[in-house]
């Protein structure tokens, strides 16, 4: 294909339009990311970063049990949160899609995700009010005579999980609802005509058809949950640390950039693995 001068002039114009965004992303995202990847292979001595290439940081990650433990904690908490959130959100999405009259559905959905739009910090603080020793839940339980001593809800893994589940129930309700309303009622009618019971219809027809929505939500849950620092920091207490907390610790107290960078890349590798695992369903959603 020959390029005429006119086309060349047009193309130059197009570059002019695209360039600011490309330059910005390269300068403030791609380059910093590459630099961080390089740093993760360097070391620190005497408080300064030294550019000698080594895999020490990664070796330390797999060698030091408290670092590896942080990743395992993160994976555990994320898995628990993802499963509970799906189990809670699915019925809610179903009720909004099937039982709420059409004209109220949009409102019902907006209400279901309204607190989604508070910042992480404020949301976690609100849960602290609810879950702390003198908080609403404990005072109610004691007042009702169900427990004698306040339960350890905040400053524990329970606190972290509740805080996370709250956020992700909203997110998953949204993705599953979006999937449910797309389903044609004909599927259910056909299944009923063929003699399937309500439960059979759900298990063999509705559930497989909504799997893409569940997987998209589960993937988002995984990514956002495993990378979050605020929720565990405010609600989780000091007994166990999650990976983002450990990363922030490297930055704060020890100013160990190489180690923080290496841990971040481990975090990113885990997310990439999750993406590869979910890619099949994520693609289906796009069509």
């Amino acid at each position: 294909m020959t390029v005429t001068p006119l086309e060349r002039a047009e193309q130059r114009k197009a570059w002019g339009f695209a360039l600011p965004a490309l330059v910005w992303t390269t300068a403030f995202f791609l380059f910093p990311f590459a630099y961080m990847a390089a740093i993760s292979l360097w070391t620190r001595s005497g408080g300064k970063i030294v550019a000698t290439w080594t895999l020490d940081n990664y070796a330390a990650f797999f060698g030091k049990s408290h670092l590896l433990k942080a990743l395992l904690n993160s994976l555990e908490v994320t898995a628990i949160v993802t499963v509970i959130s799906i189990l809670l959100a699915y019925p809610l999405a179903w009720i909004i899609a099937e039982r709420v009259p059409k004209r109220w559905q949009r409102m019902a959905l907006i209400m279901a995700i309204l607190p989604f739009w508070t910042s992480y910090v404020v949301r976690s603080y609100s849960w602290l009010l609810v879950l702390s020793k003198g908080g609403v839940v404990n005072q109610t339980l004691i007042w009702a005579g169900l427990v004698a001593e306040p339960l350890q809800l905040s400053a524990s893994r329970t606190g972290t999980v509740i805080g996370f589940v709250h956020f992700f129930v909203m997110l998953l309700t949204l993705t599953i609802y979006a999937n449910l309303v797309q389903l044609s009622p004909n599927y259910r009618r056909a299944a009923a005509d063929l003699g399937a019971s309500g439960l059979q219809t759900f298990r063999h027809v509705i559930l497989p058809l909504t799997l893409p929505g569940i997987m998209v939500g589960a993937f988002l849950t995984f990514v956002l949950c495993i990378g979050d620092y605020i929720t565990p920091q405010i609600l989780g207490g000091n007994n166990e640390l999650l990976l983002p907390q450990v990363i922030m610790l490297q930055l704060g107290r020890r100013a160990d950039f190489p180690m923080a960078a290496a841990l971040s890349l481990v975090l990113m590798a885990v997310v990439t693995l999750a993406y590869l695992f979910c890619a099949r369903w994520l693609k289906m959603e796009r069509t």
Binding site: A21, F29, P32, I39, G227, I247, M268
Partner: peptide, 18 residues
Amino acid sequence: IVAPMTVSTLIIALGLLS
């Protein structure tokens, strides 16, 4: 251009900070 959407903000922040 859309790549930053797939990376956690902690990593973006850390890269910029370094």
